[in-house]
Design a protein around this nucleic acid. Structure first.
Lengths: 205, 205
DNA sequence: GAGGTAATTATTCAAGTGTACAATAAGCAA
DNA sequence: TTGCTTATTGTACACTTGAATAATTACCTC
């Protein structure tokens, strides 16, 4: 007797498959994300993948797009004045759900393939540049607020430095969050961004 | 007729297998590092892996140890006064062979497994803490040289921030080195480290 | 040179891989 | 209810995987 099943709406089932894929990758790595393991976690059988994705690689690429969106959407939709946006930017990127070991595992798994997989490389660069551009705009706005020039060369250099700092602290936090006291990373990040900008962030720490 | 072969010294053949493993991982990812592909690149047949390593996983772990050593040994054997050591630290970590897309692919492939593989996790944390401790010592030395206190709390916070900054800039350089002009990352890093330390690095660009 | 040791090859095996495809049943429309 | 569409299942296939093992040959010692 064949097992009973539920017919799900297309968008919903696609999303379930993508979520199961990310679960597999974070727990078992890319090589553990087999069609059988993915579909088992999604509660369906292996054949169904081909109904929603032309190939397994396309499912993987869709999962990467989904991950990038979840890691960047909060930081790209900030509201308020430039100063509070900058403070929120720091906090969001160094606290859950952006900063945890699962995010790092996923991010690293895909990054390791970006150099050799053109499809993933395209997905990556698109998301990366958008992220850095939004940070550069944020810095320019903040400088203007404090009466400084928004000189493109300066903004670019500061965006590169602060982007690097935030990436690195995010890494440290994900890899060994237990080595830091509560709020320590955010305090260090805030002080460092102030030092790099040469400006103080009122209301911080 | 059986193919001719060369009997290599144990250390040499082990090293060849490890090198071939890293090549596979950097070009094809962890899932592309199969026993057959690795041994083909090393110029031997698949069965030989079992003669040098009890299991494939042990070969992978050995490759990870080798990678960490190649990424950190130069920065941990600096000589000279604290200031030139700090400048060398910046340059070494942002130029070849530490900073290139191959290093990043390899590093990311292993990092993605650190969360789920206890053996790799141990290898990782050992290397990471040694690296950060040496940076913290370097910062303390430099502060003393400039007549400042070597207060542990301050040194720790500055080490975390500078470690994060360097990690992040290394990442950016590896991922998209073509987006930066010659020496741009080093200039940004030097200026940022000065800002974070509140001290200037004489003789720096 | 001769003989022994063990590094290396070649072959085999069971388990797991992505994909193709026919069979089936869930849900909708009438 | 009846019939239709198609989402989903179950099975099969060709191929790859890591590992085990027997057969061979390179190299060292004497």
């Amino acid at each position: 007797m064949r097992r009973t099943f539920h017919r799900a709406p297309e968008a919903e089932r696609r999303q379930e498959l993508i979520a199961a894929t990310l679960d597999c990758i974070s727990e078992l790595g890319l090589k553990g994300a087999t069609v059988r393991e993915i579909t088992a976690r999604a509660g369906v059988t292996a054949g169904l993948v081909r109904h929603y994705f032309e190939t397994k690689d396309q499912l993987i690429a869709a999962a990467y797009r989904s991950l990038i969106a979840s890691l960047t959407e909060k930081a790209e939709n900030l509201t308020g004045d430039p100063e509070s946006r900058l403070r929120d930017f720091i906090v969001i990127n160094l606290t859950e759900p952006v900063a945890n070991s699962r995010s790092l595992s996923l991010w690293a798994a895909f990054i390791s393939q970006v150099g050799s997989d053109p499809v993933l490389a395209a997905v990556h660069r698109e998301g990366y540049l958008a992220f850095r551009d939004s940070l550069e705009g944020l810095i320019a706005d903040f400088r203007v607020l404090r009466g400084l020039t928004a000189d493109p060369g300066i903004c670019r250099a500061q965006a590169i430095a602060i982007n690097g700092l935030m990436d690195g602290l995010w890494l440290e936090g994900c890899l060994a969050g237990d080595l830091f006291a509560d709020g320590e990373l955010i305090r260090i990040a805030t002080g460092s961004v102030e030092a790099l900008l040469g400006l103080s962030l009122q209301g911080a720490g």
